[in-house]
Design a protein around this nucleic acid. Structure first.
Lengths: 127, 127
DNA sequence: TTCTTATACATTAGAAACTTATGTATAAAA
DNA sequence: TTTTATACATAAGTTTCTAATGTATAAGAA
């Protein structure tokens, strides 16, 4: 899609994966969790779902999403089915068995990560 | 130095194949939060403190830590003082005024990040 | 009707944060 | 006396992202 010169900055400020570096490394976990919940989703749908859940705060860029999906597929964690809807191509992704198992691990890791970060940020409470 | 089986580096568990990329991007926030709390710390002390807080789960590597400290200093967020203790060099870092302000922002971002991740992982509860 | 936005996929150059390995040096413990 | 702990550092290579670009169709606004 083309974007005119003076719109680029405005758009990219609200379009990228939120300022902070914190989201780095969390994309795969997000994708896998959403697929676990929904059964199957296509790429664009994932970006919209994440935007909705985070009330527009987290916007997954296509340059991050599609390579991530391809990689998860290559690792055998996702299966893909192509479908044509309204004369437009969709690639529906779903977790493989291996992917489902791995999702459990990743979610456990996410919980650990959050606990650890909270321990650092809020040393008074011990999690 | 060797890293034992169960420890996470700033990214991955060495032997365990478990791939927790989640810590990627959180190092600066960790450093700044600890400095805010402690007043001043030196690099090695930071690694030990994080290890202690996370009960050995998060092990910051030197190759990640020192460049991060140098960069924060270059950005004017940290000040450094050299001291010789027991005939060994220590570089004590502390937050500048700018760094203190920035720490507030980064901690707010971390909170947002955690909230968003929890919204994705646990869609039933709305945070 | 024509221009723009939305939907839907994709790739690539470059930035940034890491890992892994290596290096120097001193002090304490086994 | 050999290893581990303390304390700094850099550098090559990997991964994950951003920003930009590309193709194509459908819907909505001007």
């Amino acid at each position: 899609m083309f974007v005119k010169a003076n719109e680029i900055n405005l758009i990219s400020k609200t379009t990228n994966m939120k300022n902070s570096q914190l989201y780095k490394g969390s994309l795969n976990t997000i994708i896998m969790k959403l697929l676990e919940e929904k059964g199957r989703m296509y790429g664009y749908e994932i970006t919209q779902k994440v935007k909705e859940i985070t009330q527009g705060e987290l916007n997954i860029t296509e340059g991050a999403l599609y390579p991530a999906l391809h990689k998860l597929e290559a690792e055998g964690l996702l299966d893909v089915e192509m479908e044509k809807v309204d004369n437009r191509l969709r690639k529906y992704y779903k977790l493989t068995e291996k992917g489902t198992t791995e999702t459990v691990n990743r979610l456990a890791e996410l919980e650990d990560f959050i606990k650890n970060m909270q321990s650092i940020v809020n040393p008074k409470l011990s999690y």
